[in-house]
């Protein structure tokens, strides 16, 4: 049973000629899809990767303000860029907007096809009136955090780090996937929930060879198809240090 729906509306840029919304608000949730550097009226896009990222994040700020909140309420964001060489630039601009490592949204940068001229796109989820709390696995460093905001928990992309050593577990995709699921369980528990709260797990690997072993690890961890989270399996950039990464979205 879903919570009662009270409020639903789209959020548009301030220019009256702008036709495409920046995002949608459902109750106290705000979802931004496809924030980019395009001019809201003409559609024209220009600038290098840093300038475009800055413009897209400017739209995120504008969206949150117009929704009645601020960047403080953003729980999770995803950057999409067209080449691995741009990932660091996206992250550098991101860190200027969210400079406090203890208070930033879950985040990841993926590679995707974008329209001609577009170098970056940002999607984000926010919960109005709520603030982020960061959770970590002891001894495991995370560049992008796992956060709880309101009754939501979002991880960034987690890896198969062993708690004892902090290093990626050896043994290939299957072992890494198993350890990563263990790490997600640790994170959701530290955020005050349990694995039953996980609604969605998205896995990331470099090529199709990782799909099956990652899925088998998921099925071993969540054997009941009736209650398991939704599994999305994406083939995309993952750091050379590992074979697989996973993220979760949970509702407490």
């Amino acid at each position: 049973m879903a919570a009662p729906l009270k409020q639903i509306y789209e959020i548009y840029p301030s220019a009256p000629q702008a036709l495409l919304p920046l995002g949608v608000r459902v109750n106290d949730m705000v979802y931004a899809e496809s924030l980019n550097a395009a001019d809201p009226v003409t559609g024209a896009v220009s600038g290098d990767i840093k300038e475009q990222t800055s413009a897209a994040l400017g739209k995120l700020r504008d969206l949150m303000t117009r929704a009645g909140g601020s960047l403080d309420n953003v729980g999770r964001a995803v950057g999409f860029c067209t080449t691995a060489e741009h990932r660091n630039a996206v992250d550098e601009v991101w860190m200027t907007v969210f400079p406090d490592i203890n208070d930033k949204p879950a985040f990841k940068v993926l590679l995707a096809e974008l329209p001609p001229g577009h170098l970056v796109r940002i999607d984000a989820l926010a919960l109005l009136g709520e603030r982020r709390t960061r959770f970590d696995i002891p001894n495991v460093t995370a560049h992008d955090p796992t956060v709880r905001i309101g009754n939501w928990v979002f991880s960034s992309r987690c890896h198969g780090n062993e708690h004892a050593t902090g290093k990626i577990v050896e043994g290939g995709v299957a072992a890494e996937a198993k350890q990563t699921l263990e790490n997600l369980a640790t994170l959701i528990k530290s955020a005050g929930g349990s694995e039953a709260n996980i609604r969605q797990i998205t896995t990331f690997g470099r090529d199709a060879s990782y799909l099956e072993p990652a899925r088998l690890a998921f099925e071993a961890r969540f054997p009941d198809p009736a209650t398991c989270p939704v599994l999305n399996q994406v083939i995309n950039f993952v750091s050379p240090a590992m074979q697989v990464a996973m993220e979760m979205a949970a509702v407490l």
Partner: peptide, 29 residues
């Protein structure tokens, strides 16, 4: 318990990592 489900909806996530939409509660956008 009353709660909102949130879930991204993908088209073909093997080829395209960008979600096509989102499901918030029982509203799909």
């Amino acid at each position: 318990a009353e709660r909102f489900v949130i879930q991204e909806v993908f088209g073909n996530e093997d080829a395209d990592p960008i979600p096509q939409g989102i499901c918030i509660g029982n509203v799909v956008h």
